[in-house]
């Protein structure tokens, strides 16, 4: 079943891709092939392989339980928040919070997670900023 859904989504992507390819604005100065042909070939390959999944799906993969799905969803959410907030609050704080969360969710005790999270953040800061001189995001507090 998963493969059939995957095939359906793949087919949809192929169609959207092909449609987007046909509406590419062509420049008056174009080569013999133009900017549309190659994307259309790709769309065809995408579409054909998706049809294959629809009609001949592989055995079902072992999907995680709903709890684990939520786990992955929230981890992704934390990473997105991290990406958005990094320039706002600065590297040290954002990284400490994000790695605390990930360490905790991977099975470390809460208190130990906080320690590991802060240590990770400070460790990366020391190695990459102070020793190697990389520019990391600095927040309102300057770090």
């Amino acid at each position: 079943m998963s493969d059939r859904i995957f095939g359906g989504i793949g087919l949809l992507i192929a169609l959207i891709f092909a449609w987007q390819a046909t509406i590419i604005q062509e420049s008056f100065l174009s080569d013999a092939v133009g900017p549309k042909t190659f994307p259309l070939i790709i769309a065809a390959v995408l579409g054909i392989s998706s049809l294959y999944f629809l009609f001949k799906p592989d055995p079902e993969p072992t999907w995680p339980t709903l709890g684990r799905f939520a786990e992955i969803f929230f981890a992704a959410l934390v990473m997105i928040a991290y990406a958005e907030l990094l320039p706002e609050v600065g590297f040290l704080i954002a990284t400490a919070v994000a790695s605390t969360y990930l360490t905790w969710r991977l099975g470390t005790g809460p208190l130990q997670s906080v320690i590991v999270g802060i240590a990770t953040s400070v460790g990366i800061y020391v190695v990459f900023k102070l020793i190697l001189g990389l520019s990391l995001a600095s927040g309102p507090l300057g770090f």
Partner: peptide, 28 residues
């Protein structure tokens, strides 16, 4: 243990990509 290692991997990945472009968009 991986529970300590994997967050470090994730964070170093973020640092590296942010270091190149400095844009949140790339991180997303």
């Amino acid at each position: 243990p991986p529970r300590i290692l994997m967050p470090i991997v994730a964070m170093v990945s973020f640092v590296g990509i942010y270091g190149i472009s400095g844009s949140s968009f790339d991180l997303l």
